[in-house]
């Protein structure tokens, strides 16, 4: 009965394969850039390097390239898992991490910080001003949306969806307003922020914290994977097989929004990751969330590491915002999937 249902072995092998692919992508992305860093040689494979070169390459790798590559990986994983669980929650294939409104609040917070000049210069304020404000915006909107969408302690999917969409539109209007009063220089920063970019000035401590929280949240969401499977058969069907639906919906909204809020705070609105990767994995691996969530966490990392590699090398020495790359690559690819074999793999 190997293909009739999922086994833990299948989850383990698929996840391991993807982890190896991710490792290869990390090495590739660490090597390529303005200076080619021979990562494999640094790891002791192939010809060894002389001391001075070795030191220089190590500095470039650890101080310039690796922080950004690792951050791209975590962002990709977080956004993909958020996409998967929101699609499961809303039973809608077009749901992405940004649909439930938290991204609107986060980007409004980030843009406000840019207007106040908190992103310029050096020091703690410049490093944490924008993400700090953005994360505050994300948390505030999370609470607000939850309050508006709850009714008698219950949480209907249509209400969350509508509240999120309206909330996003409201935030977008405020952002337009801020853009209209911003200076030219601020406007440039705001536009780039909104397009989505993996920053290269975030310290290891912040990256580590982000990685830790994202992984913990992804694991908590993975713990609800069987519930998401049952929910694909309708909310009532899920209750009837024993899913505590109100608890699952609420936790999913909170945890998915937390992932999204963190990602937007750090990197702005990087689109398509949370839409394309879940669909691609569903087509390759099937619909079971016990397989989708772990492979999504790693597969999303692979996708964004590669997209960010393109973003910084395609038009070097200039950079293309990674959000533009994901949309340019992801959009057509998504349409291709949809036309070829995607119809079966969308919620109908």
């Amino acid at each position: 009965m190997s293909h009739e249902h999922l086994t833990s072995g299948r989850v383990l092998t698929r996840t391991t394969i993807l982890a190896v692919v991710l490792l290869a992508c990390l090495i590739l992305a660490g090597s390529v850039g303005a200076v080619r860093v021979p990562v494999l040689n640094l790891l002791g494979l192939g010809e060894s390097l002389d001391g001075e070169d070795r030191l220089l390459f190590l500095r470039i790798l650890f101080e310039v390239r690796l922080p950004r590559v690792l951050l791209a990986a975590i962002l990709g994983g977080a956004l993909t898992v958020a996409g998967i669980v929101f699609q499961a929650l809303l039973r809608n294939p077009l749901a992405d991490p940004y649909i439930l409104g938290v991204s609107g609040g986060a980007s409004l917070g980030g843009v406000t910080a840019l207007l106040l000049g908190l992103g310029a210069g050096t020091g703690l304020v410049s490093q944490f001003g924008v993400p700090g404000f953005a994360f505050l915006g994300a948390l505030l909107s999370l609470i607000l949306i939850e309050r508006i969408a709850s009714h008698d302690g219950r949480f209907t999917v249509h209400t969350i969806l509508l509240t999120g969409v309206i909330f996003n539109a409201f935030c977008a209007a405020l952002i337009f307003f801020i853009q209209s009063i911003a200076s030219l220089e601020q406007l440039h920063a705001i536009v780039f922020y909104l397009m989505g970019q993996v920053p290269d000035d975030l310290g290891y401590l912040s990256i580590g914290g982000f990685a830790l929280v994202s992984t913990a949240v992804a694991i908590s969401l993975f713990a609800m994977a069987r519930d998401y499977n049952a929910m694909a058969m309708g909310e009532e069907g899920a209750i009837q097989v024993g899913v505590d639906i109100e608890r699952i919906k609420r936790r999913t909204f909170f945890l998915g929004s937390l992932l999204t809020g963190m990602a937007v705070s750090v990197a702005g609105l990087i689109g398509f990751v949370g839409l394309v990767v879940p669909h691609l994995l569903r087509i390759i691996l099937g619909p079971d969330h016990r397989l989708l969530i772990p492979t999504g966490f790693i597969g999303g990392a692979v996708f964004l590491v590669l997209a960010d590699l393109l973003a910084r090398t395609l038009a070097a020495p200039n950079e293309i915002p990674v959000g533009v790359v994901t949309a340019l690559v992801g959009g057509p690819f998504f349409l291709y999937l949809l036309r070829s074999k995607g119809r079966d793999y969308a919620f109908s």
Partner: peptide, 20 residues
């Protein structure tokens, strides 16, 4: 009637009955 949102196999659907 039952919603069939995702392409699970019949066996997978029946196994959902083991959820509880």
């Amino acid at each position: 009637e039952t919603e069939t949102g995702l392409p699970f196999t019949a066996t997978e659907v029946v196994l959902m009955g083991r959820h509880a």
